[in-house]
Amino acid sequence: MDIMGRAKTCESNTLDTYKLYRANMVDNQRLIGEFLRAKREQIAPAMVGLPQPKRSRTRGLRREDVAELSGISTVWYSKIERGQAAGISSSVVCPESGFTA
């Protein structure tokens, strides 16, 4: 195989590896989001010392409540839960963040 053939093979392998990495990363983000949503829905506001809203369309805590308890913005938490945020720090998803369930 000549040098150009080897370069194309290397480029193809690198691209395939990158695509696999991206697919796994997106899948992991989706799984984190599903987990956080499930936990949020299982926790009543009273369990974390918040008043029960008079009207709520969601079960459990609202995204705003979780964001406040975790010390992050509602926009950032929403992105995490929708699987659209890369680079999530462990302080956001770990119990040490202040949101324990």
Rank of each mutant, 00 (worst) to 15 (best):
E96A: 10
I43P: 06
M1K: 12
R62I: 01
R37M: 14
L61G: 03
R57C: 00
A7L: 12
E64Q: 11
T58W: 09
L61W: 01
V75E: 11
R37E: 14
I43C: 12
P53W: 00
G87V: 11
M4L: 13
K54A: 14
G33A: 06
A101E: 05
P51S: 01
G60P: 05
I80V: 15
G60C: 03
P51I: 00
S89T: 14
N13W: 04
S89M: 04
I3C: 07
V93C: 05
E34P: 08
A7G: 02
D2A: 06
T17L: 10
I43H: 03
K19G: 01
N28D: 05
R63M: 14
Q29L: 02
S89F: 01
K8Y: 06
C10V: 11
G71L: 05
R55C: 10
W76S: 08
P95V: 03
D27H: 09
L69W: 03
Q42C: 13
Q29N: 03
S90F: 02
A44N: 15
R6A: 06
R57A: 08
R30K: 14
V92W: 03
T14Y: 04
S12K: 13
W76N: 07
T74A: 15
V92S: 08
E34N: 12
A85D: 05
S90Y: 03
I80N: 09
K39T: 12
S78N: 13
P95A: 10
Y18P: 02
Q84H: 11
A38P: 09
D2H: 10
T9S: 13
M1V: 08
Q52F: 01
L36K: 07
E64T: 05
G5I: 04
M25R: 11
A46V: 03
G33N: 08
T100R: 15
A44F: 06
S90G: 02
R30C: 01
I32M: 11
K8F: 07
M47Q: 14
G5R: 11
M25A: 10
S91C: 06
S97F: 04
S91M: 10
V92T: 11
T58N: 10
V75K: 15
V66N: 05
P95S: 10
R55W: 07
R82K: 15
D27P: 03
S91P: 06
S89N: 09
F35Q: 12
A85R: 15
R55Q: 15
G71H: 07
P45E: 00
D65F: 03
V75G: 06
L20M: 10
P53R: 02
L69G: 04
I3P: 04
E68S: 09
A44K: 15
M47Y: 00
R63K: 14
Y18Q: 11
W76P: 01
S70T: 15
I32T: 09
E68T: 10
T100D: 14
R55M: 12
Y21C: 08
T58K: 13
S73Y: 05
N28H: 00
W76D: 08
L15Q: 14
V66G: 05
A67C: 05
R22L: 12
I3W: 08
E64R: 11
A101T: 07
S89W: 00
P45G: 02
V75H: 12
D2T: 11
P51V: 00
L50E: 08
I32W: 01
E11Y: 09
M1S: 14
E68L: 07
D65A: 13
T58Q: 12
G98K: 09
C94K: 12
R40F: 02
L50A: 08
E96S: 13
I80Y: 06
S97W: 03
T58E: 09
M25I: 02
V92L: 02
